[in-house]
Amino acid sequence: MNDRSTGTDTDADVDTDTHPHPNTDPGTVFVAGSTGVLGRRLVTRLSERGHDVIGLVRDDRGASLVRERGGEPRRGDVLERESLESAASGADVVIHAATAIPTDGKPSAADWERNDRVRLEGTTNLLDAAESIGADRFLLQSIVWVARQHDGRPFDEDAPPNPDRTTRSALEAERLLESTAQTGGLDAVTLRCGWFYAHDAAHTRQFGRLLANGRMPIVGGGLLGREDATLSCLHVDDAADAFAAAAEGEETGRYHVVDEKPTTFASFLRTFADRLGASPPRRLPGWLVRPLLGRASVRLLTSSMPTTNDRFRAAFDWEPSVPTVEVGLERVIDRWLEEGSLRERRTDGGYEWTDE
């Protein structure tokens, strides 16, 4: 699940342990969503690679976060069209990395409506700003499960889309970008990312806490919950590197950005629990937990979305530094230990949260 990122901060620092790749012809990149879980990394990565980075912010805290990562903060909001032209002025590349994916246990209709606005209205406003300032390139963050197939079979970028209530606005934003690019000459790139996770992603932290306390079930499909969905995942560090590579590249179009090995939700949680030294999670059918999690969350966790990064790797200078969730979850827990969120229990070698 992608983390909330409309221009407000989430709750932890970002990894900066990947190798910078200086650009031989650095330009100015404008990042909407610069203080979110992806955006913070983007400001860092692009600055490391020699770019001048402008980060869209809405408050002083956001401005400090952007400055700390080597960027120039400018005030504005993707939902306020008049604020964007001056904020993005001078940018060669515009990146729409702002989202408002709900992080509550059971999102409301209003939560999803705000996400729709950020995706669609935000794309409209940013495209207008990009045209006004004469930007050359526009990158849009989307999600691979907008095109997951009814029968769960593998799919690629050419597969017919299969949106639901929660992904329809992502598809509409993709189509708006493609239409604008065709008529306006803007180089357009849509990066459909896999299921995000990282030490500072809200859902990852929620899952970690629940697993450590034995309260996170495996949500499965079917009458007894024994049918597992295959997920295409992506550590957010690799997502940031992918956007940086696409900002510097020349290819356009729609690409899937995921790690090297799809996994099931059951395997993800079992691996996570094992790394935490927690009890294996029990299995519950989706229909039983739907009243608690909501229809959208259950569908996400019980509907397969197997795809690959083949097309993106062929087009751009990128490969994932976190090839599997097994490697990624080790990174997540290492960061929690480093920052002091977790500590080892003396009794059994497992881990516990320090603020509980």
Results as ranks from 00 to 15, higher is better:
Q182G: 15
I101P: 07
W195R: 12
D11H: 10
D128K: 14
R205Y: 06
T8C: 03
L329R: 09
R299C: 05
L300G: 03
S47Y: 13
Q206I: 10
A242G: 10
R270I: 01
W336C: 03
S83H: 05
A266S: 13
D317F: 02
S83D: 01
L337R: 15
P291S: 01
R74I: 11
S341C: 03
E352F: 00
I101D: 13
R175E: 14
V144W: 05
V29R: 07
G328P: 00
R299L: 08
C233R: 10
G222M: 06
R295A: 07
F138P: 02
G253I: 00
D228H: 12
G7N: 01
H256S: 02
W336S: 08
G134R: 10
L126I: 13
G122P: 06
R290Q: 10
D228F: 06
A188F: 09
G220E: 00
D200P: 00
T35W: 10
P73E: 08
F272Y: 00
R74Y: 14
V14N: 08
P160A: 00
R311D: 11
R4A: 09
S304L: 12
R153H: 08
G184D: 03
L56M: 00
D310P: 04
R331E: 04
A12H: 07
V322T: 08
F243W: 08
V327I: 10
D77M: 02
R67H: 14
R209G: 14
V29Q: 04
T35E: 10
E344G: 03
E178Q: 11
A98R: 15
A109K: 06
Q149E: 05
A88Y: 10
F30T: 02
G253C: 00
G90L: 03
I95N: 13
A98N: 14
T204M: 10
T302I: 06
L269A: 05
G328N: 04
Y197Q: 07
L126F: 06
S108D: 01
T347L: 09
V53T: 15
I54N: 13
D238N: 12
L191P: 05
N213A: 11
W112T: 00
G220R: 08
T166R: 09
A100C: 02
L84Q: 01
D187V: 10
V327S: 08
A239Y: 12
T123S: 15
T28K: 08
S279G: 03
D156H: 02
G294Y: 00
T324D: 05
T44R: 12
D187I: 05
G225L: 01
G340M: 09
L276A: 09
L127C: 11
G184W: 04
S279I: 07
V219N: 05
S297Q: 12
L65W: 12
L120Q: 00
T204L: 10
R215E: 07
R345C: 03
I333A: 11
V144Q: 06
E121S: 14
D228S: 13
L337M: 13
D25Q: 15
L84N: 01
G27I: 12
L120S: 02
G253Q: 00
A130R: 02
